[in-house]
Amino acid sequence: MNLKRKNLRNGLLFISPWIIGFLVFTAYPLFSSLYYSFTEYNVISPPTFVGWDNYKQLLFQDKLFYKVLGNTLYLVVFGIGLTTVVTIFIAVLLNNKNIKGLSFFRVVFFLPTLVPLVILAILWIWVLQPDNGIVNSFLHLFGTNGPGWFSSPGWAKPAFILMMIWGSGRMIIIYLAGLQGISASLYEAARIDGAGPIQQFFQITLPMLKPVILFNVITGIIAVLQQFAEAFIITDGGPDGSTTFYALYLYQNAFQYSKMGYASAMGWILFVIALVIMLVLFRLTKRWGYDG
């Protein structure tokens, strides 16, 4: 057997677990959900074909669906936006070479990511308790009464954003690694040209960090699209549907209302949304000259 063929055989053999897993746990579900999305299926009786009904109902009749999209978009735009600013800021602070105890600070920012989701939810119910939570007790010191957070339709989403920032230690570490990879000679050259710290940040740090920002933003968006446990446990979508995010609404349709066909259609719309995001990502990486 010649080497090329032997290598092909060995290569496929080694990755065969992935091939099987991909076909059974990814490709098959993806296509069977396309089928289910054109049916009405409550698990008890067999699926009946309904054509485009599920999609029509989602896009033209289900008012809650648009609210859910809006809620999710809110988390994507403001949540990811704010988290990105805060995490880059902290990473830049940590990247200062005059700072001692870097590993201590790094641990502090990383600790929240170690809390299991369920415990995270319990913790934040209490941190943002309207009467005695630490946040509102702190605000009380300044003579202001904090908002109702999870019990207020206007403040529940910002509360989720606070949680998101608190749990963003992974992003901080990734940004820090990115910052440490920027050559010191670039800053040296900028200093010689008379650029101050702020100019250096905008003209060197940010452009050099672009690929890392892109990575964090994309994985952040995917995480928001999948965000489920926190909302399910803390608010169950309330108050007034203000925290019914995409993954939660899909779960409710599938497992609480037994509308498997409807939930599958939601799954496919989510797939298209994720696909568009990925395509935009690949476009942008190309334009920024960042290719594997």
């Binding site: 290598n7 060995n10 990755i15 992935w18 990814t26 959900s33 995917i222 599938a254 989510l270 797939f271």
Partner: peptide, 28 residues
């Protein structure tokens, strides 16, 4: 191991990293 299609298939692997669980949750 160097083999034909390897890098193309690896891109599929990377792409599945970005697939939200909810897309396949119901059929799974």
């Amino acid at each position: 191991i160097k083999w034909k299609f390897r890098d193309a298939i690896f891109i599929i692997v990377l792409t599945t990293m970005l697939l939200p669980f909810q897309v396949t949750m119901v059929p799974l």
